[in-house]
Design a protein around this nucleic acid. Structure first.
Lengths: 267, 267
DNA sequence: CGTCGCTTTGATCATGATCAAGGGATGTGG
DNA sequence: CCACATCCCTTGATCATGATCAAAGCGACG
């Protein structure tokens, strides 16, 4: 259960790592994120960070650990809506609603940096470029949700599980928590089922089938994907949706192409 | 098939209508949107506005008509990822990726205002407050995707259809295209199935069942929900996820609470 | 040492898919 | 104006994917 990379100690390091390829943070950005997220909080495995229906006071940048965002329906059925790994924000897009739409629970002991909504919203007035980067990343999360709609809506159980493992491989790689084919996955099979709309028992059978075919191995909490190519083909996995365009073009477009005249910013 | 409201003629009117409650647009905002979206385009029913894999050059603000965002898998299975109604943006979040992740097709003849990516990105430099409002609305779209994950992942067919009809009722009401219990729904049962991960034949049976129970009526292209309360109970529908907090607090937080000092905006 | 969380496996069931066929409306080209 | 095609709805019969129920084993942990 060794870690591939030592967890970064603070918020700005972890965010910079996630954003590295696409949303380069300036030293100034990192200083601000460090300031904003200086108040860290630990969430123990199986404990809730946010409970559905509660009022929002902050968002949380995950520094270490894994959390899941979920809803439990009246009759006990549970759907996991997203897995939140280091570098991701927890509490988004709930922060745009007065009360939390979902609960968020730590799946493995987690450390998060707390950013008050006041500070977050204030970024628009004080550091609009950084605000743009953060909101750009919020928007990109939609792409993951949309893709998962295709997974759950139109793929068979085997494909769903395969896709799930590959998406997580890719996301973990981005933040340096996976090598080219393996990572630590602290989820029970029940949680995987709840993320994919499958029953616990069936997830177990499907995983067994994938293992029997020599495609993946689970040992302890580590997943090893022995043939990423083959599994991707099986799942019809295209990782494009996890690779947005660099935001540089967005925040700093070529000056010549700006068509609108400027307005005073803080009028 | 009468319309409840006459369709607004231009982009800023339609956006203002959608944003009315939550994201008040200033007169200046509306002028800018009018400028940006002055180039309109018509998309005939069944024609594609964007084809998966194409390079992105613009986003489109829907003025009139309905479109759907979808993917077709290798073996022909189709998943509709979202319905795009007047006031929504088409081409988001695809615009954050070099190539379109999904195709977008008009379900009913549509009119859209075209906004080039250059102009959209340029908003951050030229009109950051308006950019904030637009990106805030992009982020809110995530909430709809997440909710639909719960619908498709953990709800039975009857509940899915009921939830679908209620979500659309609420969204159409926001832009003045539905009264308190009915609206025009130009979708075939096959499309509804593709949005909900169900087969055409089964959608038909479920709709029949809802009709037999006197909960809804389909006539011509109009849906009438006879008992919104009962249907909401059946579907476990909570419309909170369609009602974000007003953005005013976000863009104009109380000055006293701003903790960070300001930086020059266009350094 | 006993409980709890998690995995594994079997047996049975049912929701919803698939296949097939027909009918009504609308549209289109000859 | 008719013939034909297409789209969409409807319904029946059958099938299968995956759910549900049940029970047992296995660590880990207190």
């Amino acid at each position: 259960m060794k870690r591939l990379a030592t967890g970064p100690a603070n918020a700005s390091e972890q965010l910079a790592r996630k954003f590295a390829e696409y949303v380069p943070l300036t030293p100034e950005d990192r200083r601000i994120v460090s300031d904003l997220g200086s108040e860290t909080r630990h969430v123990r495995r199986r404990h809730d960070l946010i409970v559905e229906g509660a009022r929002h006071r902050a968002v949380f940048l995950v520094i270490d650990g894994i959390l899941m965002r979920y809803r439990i329906l009246r009759d006990g059925r549970r759907q996991v809506v997203s897995l939140i790994i280091p570098g991701d924000f927890a509490g988004v897009p709930g922060c745009f609603f007065t009360r939390a739409l979902y609960s968020i629970k730590a799946v493995a002991d987690a450390t998060v940096a707390q950013i008050s909504l006041t500070d977050l919203y204030g970024l628009f007035a004080t550091h609009p470029k950084l605000a743009a980067k953060v909101f750009w990343s919020f928007s990109c999360d939609s792409a993951v949700y949309a893709e998962n709609l295709v997974v759950i809506g139109r793929r068979a159980a085997l494909e769903r599980v395969a896709h799930f493992l590959l998406e997580l491989l890719t996301r973990m790689q981005v933040v340096g928590l996976a090598d080219h084919r393996s990572y630590c996955l602290p989820l029970s099979q029940e949680m995987i089922g709840d993320a994919l709309g499958l029953s616990l028992a069936y997830v177990n059978r499907v995983i067994r089938e994938l293992a029997d075919d020599g495609l993946v191995t689970f040992e302890d909490q580590r997943v090893v994907i022995h043939d990423v190519e083959a599994l991707s083909a099986l799942a019809d996995f295209e990782r494009g949706y996890l690779k947005p365009v660099p935001i540089t073009e967005l925040v700093d477009p070529p000056a010549a192409e700006r068509v609108l005249h400027r307005e005073p910013l803080l009028a």
